[in-house]
Write a protein that binds this DNA or RNA. Structure first.
Lengths: 340, 340
DNA sequence: CTGTTAGCGCTTTCAC
DNA sequence: GTGAAAGCGCTAACAG
């Protein structure tokens, strides 16, 4: 590989001059010299060595992003695809994404290591939760980062998130528009901050529509198919007339559990029971019936995060320290007019 | 961040001595000095700067891996999860994975750029196909890489692949064991090398069982749900008695198309029609009925690739230039004894 | 055993 | 305008 020295020698100039040309220091070099240098660069096929540049500049142009380990009975298609769009947005800004893994319940050493070795300039976090130790840690370390997801509202950090509250609000309104009044929700555990935002949308929609909220209709469980099954099973234990005619789940995976259990119990999803998920997992469009769901705006989130990160790295206060991006409601066949 | 100079000053030794300690050049430094240096390192919290080390060593300890863009009506859960295991294996070997994206039909510039800027030490490719331009390019460039997947058999390069032939062979034998004789296959286009290996397993199983292969039973189509639907539709156009009782698809996505179309046509999957997929996509376990499938050994593939890559980077001939890893057959509810 | 020093490839200050 | 030279943080050859 040719170096700056080779270019200088070939072009009959000093390496400083080559560097000026490379860095568009127009004022420092005559048009003619510049032309000659560029011609030489072209001819010998020179590209600056990024490691050397980075050493000089004390940067890496690398953004660390931790993979989430997904148990085999789960799915996290949203985060998997998000990573693609994140990489794309990062590249547009002249960065690359370095992916790394960590022990499921002990993420900090992996972050610490990347900071200590100065491997990355910043991190992007996803799947944040309340009092997330990673956020606390990075704030303590005063290391640049942005989050896909919220956390402790008292903490002052930069994040972008899906507006789950609004998304579920719209979804429930849609069900109300179909005539449903007995709408249940398969919620996440109380510690799940994301789950709580989504749940708030459920409450708001019912409240605004003047529908009483039955505590029986709010069942909490994990992000699993099993949880969806159990939720529906519990609603089926209610007196016949009190059973919900529609269900909103916190994720497509949970919604699938609801659908599967419904089938087992002789309910027809899309007719005697309407179901809505969250995420728009790739497979959801192919379920029978196809699942109505709430799509997360992962493309926009990736772009917004990188934009915010650039401001953080420039030590500017990003104009907007955080951002809520609307979801997109995906209407499919799993919901129908009330029939019962 | 402290540097090697700070350690040297604090410990009252030269930076060379610190470097010797860091690099375990035991012979070059007395036990006592060593102890003192280590103590200082610990005390001031020093970690070597990886960029500086890399510049010196002309390496990056970064492995480039290109994301595949997945159209929204498709799924590629296998590659998404593979990336996680690849990152894990890379880290165990002291590398990190740098992910990047490229224009769907013009990948080479992205590879070229990473080579020219000396951003990565090597690449891992996946989703390879016949006469893959990326492979040809990297061979021409003489740049280190290994592949998840095969390509032109005349080319001499390092790869690890799923043994799709054996996987489908087992699957078809399983169907034969259930009494099926009319077994169809939803195959991929002829250019798909991966598809052809899998298809070969289908032919071998039938041949060994002495079952005639009907050309009507081999339908080719894309990797899409629609292709699965169309394949089943075409079989349903055969005379009633000639219609297949079992179907093997090249992917879970195609299998889902087959299942969905079957339902539309009043066939009961797992009873009047058996279906087998390929991949074990995360959702497949939750389909109704749950999909019998062939799981790709992505954990082992990731590990094998990194092992191979290490040998390549050491300029050793890897002992085994390529490796076929067996699949795991996942028996679920979508297959049953023949009933027709 | 330990230290001095050159140099990896680049940017930038400073002198001419 | 241009070039010499220092230096980013580290490794390793060489001298002592």
């Amino acid at each position: 590989m040719p170096t700056i020295k080779d270019v200088a020698r070939e072009a009959g100039v000093s390496i400083a001059t080559v560097s000026y040309v490379l860095n568009n220091k127009e004022a420092f070099v005559s048009a003619e010299t510049r032309r000659q240098v560029l011609e030489t660069i072209e001819r010998i096929g020179y590209t600056p060595n990024v490691t050397a540049r980075n050493l000089k500049a004390s940067q890496t142009r690398l953004i660390g992003y931790a993979w989430h380990e997904v148990p085999h009975n789960q799915v996290n298609s949203v985060l998997d695809r998000f990573t693609y769009y994140l990489a794309q947005a990062a590249e547009a800004a002249g960065y690359h994404v370095l992916t790394f893994t960590h022990a499921q319940h002990d993420p900090l050493p992996a972050y610490q290591e990347l900071i200590n070795t100065q491997r990355v300039d910043a991190f992007v976090l996803s799947g944040t939760n309340a009092d997330d130790p990673r956020i606390r840690f990075l704030m303590d370390e005063n290391f640049p980062f942005v989050c896909f997801g919220r956390s402790n509202p008292e903490w002052n950090f930069y994040w972008v998130d899906t507006d789950g509250e609004q998304g579920v609000y719209e979804a429930v309104n849609y069900l109300i528009g179909l005539g449903h009044r007995q709408i249940a929700v398969a919620a996440w555990p109380e510690q799940s901050i994301t789950g709580n935002f989504r749940l708030a949308g459920y409450f708001r929609a019912l409240r605004e529509a003047g529908i009483d909220i039955s505590p029986d209709y709010v069942v909490r469980g994990e992000h699993s198919e099993q949880a969806g099954r159990e939720a529906l099973a519990s609603w089926c234990r209610l007196p016949r007339r009190e059973q919900p005619t529609a269900v909103v789940a916190m994720s497509d995976l949970v919604a699938i559990g609801v659908m599967n259990e419904a089938e087992t119990r002789g309910l027809v999803v899309g007719e005697s029971l309407s179901v809505i998920g969250f995420d728009d997992a790739p497979m959801s469009q192919y379920l029978r019936p196809a699942l109505t769901t709430i799509q997360q705006p992962i493309v926009e989130i990736g772009q917004a995060l990188i934009e915010m990160l650039q401001a953080v790295l420039k030590k500017e206060q990003p104009e907007i320290p955080n951002l809520l991006i609307p979801t997109r409601f995906i209407r499919r066949a799993s919901c129908g007019f009330i029939v019962r």
